[in-house]
Design a protein around this nucleic acid. Structure first.
Length: 175
DNA sequence: CGCCAGATTGACT
DNA sequence: GTCAATCTGGCGG
């Protein structure tokens, strides 16, 4: 079963945790590439000094778009993939930080690596995951423990722990 | 138009 | 562990 817009129409904090273990599917003209989401982080705009969405730019505008919109953000020569969450007008998003390869030898253990090796680029920016024929997320039963930690890589973090990953998964980007 | 900071990665003084 | 490569978005630092 594919995840629809309603899955993303909740707070980034909830979606970041619930999307763990779901299966990301990319269709390359019939050949399907699958990977499990094992690490995420939630981002907000206001009161979130680490996010560039606290500035009034294109990123914030995209984060305010409807749930399930893909936000591609470039930093240090890497594309970072986010899914916009919550109601239209609320600037929230979930960053995908690491995937577990299911039918390939690819390295997806990092936000920049997974976009490169999963064939994600700026072309997906502002497209909606629920409307893309070659890229979707499949539901999957939850059979693991979730670990909640402070975010990594950000200069100024919030007091809240907004990083989520699957316990004991070897594909998470940093220990 | 130029400059700077950054949700990173990979190579190595 | 440290550090530079590399580029996009934001802003005139």
């Amino acid at each position: 079963m594919k995840l629809g817009k309603d899955f993303f129409e909740r707070s980034a904090e909830v979606v970041a945790e619930e999307i763990l273990g779901k299966i990301l599917v990319r269709n390359f003209g019939g050949k399907k590439l699958k990977a499990k989401i094992v690490e995420t982080e939630a981002y907000f705009d206001e009161e979130d000094p680490s996010s560039r969405a606290c500035k009034n730019g294109d990123i914030k505008k995209t984060m305010e778009m409807s749930a399930g919109t893909i936000l591609i953000y470039g930093v240090h020569n890497n594309w970072l993939m986010n899914f916009v969450t919550n109601k239209t007008g609320k600037a929230e998003a979930v960053l995908i930080r690491a995937l577990e390869p299911l039918n390939s030898e690819s390295n997806f253990s990092g936000p920049g690596l997974l976009t490169k090796n999963f064939g994600i680029n700026k072309n997906f920016h502002k497209t909606n995951i629920s409307k893309n024929a070659d890229f979707w997320i499949e539901d999957s039963p939850k059979n693991f423990e979730v670990v909640r930690k402070f975010r990594v890589g950000v200069k100024k973090d919030l007091l809240k722990q907004l990083r989520f990953y699957i316990k004991n998964n070897k594909y998470i980007s940093r220990k």
